[in-house]
Amino acid sequence: MPPAIPPNFAFLAHQDPRCVVLGMHAERYFAEGPNTRLVKRRQLGEHLAQHAAARLGLDTSPEDNQATLSNRLRERGAPGATIRQPFHELQGA
């Protein structure tokens, strides 16, 4: 039986199951493994940026780093100022 989806990520279950898994891992390792938590948190941010780029129709490549992709998203007006700061925080993680 798969683990129950925590409420923090349940809203993503019908849109992007990978986000749910990455979020669950980041949350799981919050206290157990700080280094692993940072890696998982960053992976979640990278996946969210890739997802946003795909929804906006931006061409991406595996060589695009997180900063490049974030800049391209910003040029297209996404993410909005409200969530731009958390994206930058994820990049620094």
Rank of each mutant, 00 (worst) to 15 (best):
K40S: 13
R74W: 10
H88G: 12
R41F: 15
E27A: 15
R84T: 13
D64I: 04
A67Q: 07
S70I: 08
N71Q: 13
R76I: 06
A31V: 14
A49E: 01
V21D: 12
P3G: 07
R28Y: 11
T68L: 12
N8G: 09
A13R: 02
Q66S: 08
N65I: 10
T82Q: 13
E63A: 15
P34C: 08
N65P: 01
P79A: 06
D59N: 14
A4H: 06
A26S: 12
E27V: 09
N65G: 09
A10T: 09
R84P: 03
P62K: 08
E32D: 11
F9L: 12
R74M: 07
R37S: 10
H51F: 09
R76W: 02
A81P: 01
P86F: 07
P17R: 13
N65R: 06
A49V: 03
R28E: 13
H51C: 06
E89P: 00
E75T: 09
T82N: 12
D64Y: 03
A78N: 01
A54P: 00
E46S: 09
N65T: 11
P62S: 13
F30P: 00
A93W: 06
T36P: 02
N65L: 15
A53S: 04
A26V: 10
G80K: 01
P3W: 05
G77H: 03
R37M: 13
G57H: 03
L12K: 03
